[in-house]
Amino acid sequence: MFKKEKITSMSFKEFMNSKRQPVTENKKQRQLATALIVGSVFLTALFDPTAASANAVDGMVAEKVVRAFDPVIQLVQALSYPVGLTMMLGGGLFMMIGNSERGLAMIQKAGMGYVLIQMLPLLMDLLVDIAGSM
């Protein structure tokens, strides 16, 4: 059934100095079969009737990927209120003990962080729309 080929060993120098053996008929048949298979796969991919629905599938996949982060975003948004409140309280305490510059900086940073975290879904949708238009 299977033909066993003879294996010979030679040194590297002999290998580099030897001439190439002519392509056998069996190799030509394998090369032709490979070319036919590659060609048929290419033509099938080129004229595939399901390619029109590929964009719709890509859109659904992108939507699912974006929506996969919704629980994480909701968790971060839920934690942003107590963390922001704590930072603002700390800033107020710094103002009370006389370090008003540091206190105001803490309050400003906490407020900006809270607003940005609450706007995460809007920013995410904006990025998805920008990426989809390209």
Score class of each variant (00 low, 15 high):
8 T>S: 07
128 V>P: 00
81 Y>W: 10
35 A>T: 14
9 S>I: 08
31 Q>Y: 13
41 V>H: 03
9 S>L: 06
19 K>D: 10
45 A>R: 05
119 M>V: 15
41 V>C: 00
126 L>D: 06
20 R>E: 08
130 I>R: 08
85 L>F: 06
11 S>K: 15
54 A>Y: 15
98 G>C: 00
85 L>Q: 03
72 V>R: 11
116 L>I: 14
80 S>I: 06
97 I>K: 01
89 L>A: 07
121 P>W: 02
9 S>M: 09
62 A>F: 09
50 T>G: 03
60 M>F: 14
127 L>C: 15
118 Q>T: 06
123 L>H: 15
120 L>G: 02
26 N>W: 09
12 F>C: 13
56 A>W: 13
18 S>L: 05
82 P>Y: 02
23 V>R: 10
123 L>Y: 13
130 I>N: 08
109 K>M: 04
94 F>E: 01
47 F>A: 03
56 A>E: 07
24 T>K: 14
69 F>M: 14
32 L>A: 14
65 V>S: 05
7 I>M: 03
132 G>A: 09
104 L>Y: 08
29 Q>M: 13
12 F>E: 07
126 L>K: 15
22 P>N: 04
40 S>V: 08
4 K>L: 11
91 G>A: 01
66 V>N: 03
134 M>W: 13
19 K>T: 15
1 M>G: 11
9 S>D: 13
134 M>S: 12
10 M>F: 07
72 V>E: 07
93 L>C: 10
118 Q>C: 05
61 V>R: 03
13 K>V: 11
126 L>P: 03
58 D>V: 09
113 G>A: 08
26 N>M: 10
4 K>P: 13
53 S>G: 07
47 F>C: 02
90 G>C: 09
84 G>F: 00
26 N>V: 09
50 T>I: 12
17 N>S: 15
87 M>C: 03
12 F>A: 15
55 N>K: 14
15 F>C: 05
53 S>T: 13
62 A>V: 12
1 M>I: 09
86 T>I: 11
43 L>Q: 02
62 A>L: 07
55 N>Q: 11
32 L>Y: 14
109 K>S: 07
65 V>P: 01
104 L>C: 10
107 I>M: 00
58 D>A: 10
33 A>I: 15
64 K>R: 08
134 M>L: 08
10 M>L: 07
109 K>T: 15
74 Q>M: 13
67 R>K: 14
87 M>P: 01
91 G>I: 00
43 L>H: 03
58 D>P: 07
133 S>Y: 14
85 L>A: 04
1 M>F: 12
84 G>H: 00
120 L>N: 02
116 L>W: 15
36 L>H: 15
35 A>L: 06
50 T>S: 05
125 D>E: 05
15 F>S: 05
123 L>A: 12
53 S>V: 13
75 L>H: 10
75 L>I: 12
58 D>I: 10
108 Q>Y: 03
29 Q>W: 11
23 V>D: 09
55 N>M: 13
91 G>Y: 00
88 M>R: 02
126 L>V: 12
101 E>D: 09
47 F>M: 02
98 G>N: 00
83 V>F: 00
14 E>V: 10
113 G>C: 05
21 Q>F: 08
30 R>T: 14
22 P>H: 03
46 L>Y: 04
98 G>H: 01
60 M>P: 04
14 E>I: 04
131 A>Y: 14
45 A>L: 08
113 G>D: 01
50 T>N: 04
104 L>N: 03
53 S>E: 12
28 K>A: 11
131 A>L: 15
